[in-house]
Amino acid sequence: MLKTNFSYAVLLTLAGAIPFLFCGGLVLLYPVDSPLAIQALIAYGAVILSFVGAVHWGFVLSRPESSDTAGTDKRSLGLGVLPALVGWVALLVQLRFHLPALALLFLLAGFLLTVIAETVGHGRGVVPSSYLILRWSISVIVMLVLLAVLVALLAGMRTG
């Protein structure tokens, strides 16, 4: 059963990468027509960043309560909120100030810092190995897309 669940999780993770790849591809291949694709990429990135943060609440709430893990649990719950806040700031930066490059930078930082914190959490026994492997795999794809679009914006390919 565990193998089947992990296989399904891999499939859904790959499906979740489609909007990143699609929007990023539109921006890079059709820069003149890409303002909506950039907005969609930023919005989807913020949503997914919130999702990966929420997973940590599931880790904490699925474990039996123990005074040995109280400090770690509080950090994990905090980590669960921070990615959503970073995603929200990225959305505000794009919607209010029309600064897509800055919004992409916030998202890049959010994804990178979250996966680094998860790696630390794995070392402390809080984050399962299978989850960490999946997260690093998809995070690399997501961060490469966000970075490529950011570089394109900064290089003047298009003016978001």
Rank of each mutant, 00 (worst) to 15 (best):
S34W: 10
V149T: 02
D68H: 15
K74F: 13
D68C: 15
A9N: 01
V126L: 13
S76R: 08
V52I: 14
L82P: 00
T114K: 04
V60Q: 03
R63A: 12
L108C: 04
V55I: 11
F51W: 02
T114I: 08
K3Y: 08
L82T: 12
L14D: 01
L61S: 06
A54P: 06
P19Q: 05
S34L: 10
H122Q: 15
Y8G: 00
L112P: 03
P128S: 15
L85W: 12
E65H: 14
F6Q: 00
T72L: 12
A37S: 03
V32I: 11
S130G: 00
A101Q: 14
G53A: 01
I133L: 07
G71Y: 12
G24N: 03
A103I: 09
L95G: 08
C23V: 09
E118V: 09
D73W: 03
G24R: 08
S7R: 04
T13F: 04
V126G: 13
I133Q: 04
G121T: 06
T4N: 04
L134R: 01
L104E: 04
L102M: 01
I18L: 08
F22A: 00
S34F: 06
F51K: 00
P128E: 15
L104D: 03
Y44T: 09
A46V: 00
S7P: 02
R63D: 11
W136D: 05
Q39I: 13
V93E: 11
L95R: 06
E118C: 07
V52T: 02
H98P: 05
L26F: 10
Q39N: 14
W57E: 06
D73C: 11
G160I: 05
D33P: 09
L147C: 04
S34D: 08
A84K: 07
V60P: 04
T13K: 02
G156M: 03
L113K: 10
Y30R: 14
R124P: 11
